[in-house]
Amino acid sequence: MGAPAPSMIVWELFSAFLRVGFFAFGGGMAALPLIEREVVTRHGWLTSRDFVELVALSEMSPGPIGINAATFAGFRAAGVAGSVAATVAFCLPSLVLVVVAFGILDRFRSHSLVASFLRGLRPAAVALIAVAAVSLTRAAIGDWFAAVIAGVSFFLVVRKKIDPVLLILLAGVVGMAVYR
């Protein structure tokens, strides 16, 4: 069986990221497990290893991590066309919800059912980011030294409030020195 046509992949990317964009409550980081489920698990366009590298580069680059991850994943799956499809699809639910539903949402947001639903989304957002953390940890830590890097990084972020980009650069440099 031959590889699927590129146009097919672009369409699959588009529909996958529509789903991601619609359910990404909790910001860009919460989108990560959704993206991983589509891009790695469901369609196999990237490996887990690829995905964790994608997240690292998306975090280092300027711009929201969610958009970066979508663009990057789209590019890996289907080149420039894929990156455009993934990014547009990711932003489309935002556009639709703001333009079409804004008036409706505004009127109903204090309605108790809507408010209750939204309150339930808070633990959901935390859960999504937790899934991302566990999944990335599994893929990124393969040996004890990586675990040390992760542990020291965690300390530096939580206690010393180190700048994320600086941390990743330093960790990468350490990696270059250790893994030869």
Partner: peptide, 23 residues
């Protein structure tokens, strides 16, 4: 590749700290 091997655990730690923060 060595750079990424060092950088990716740091990224995992970053996301883990975000969980703590948000939670």
């Amino acid at each position: 590749q060595s750079f990424m091997r060092g950088a990716t655990p740091a990224v995992a730690a970053l996301i883990a700290s975000a969980v703590l923060d948000m939670g």
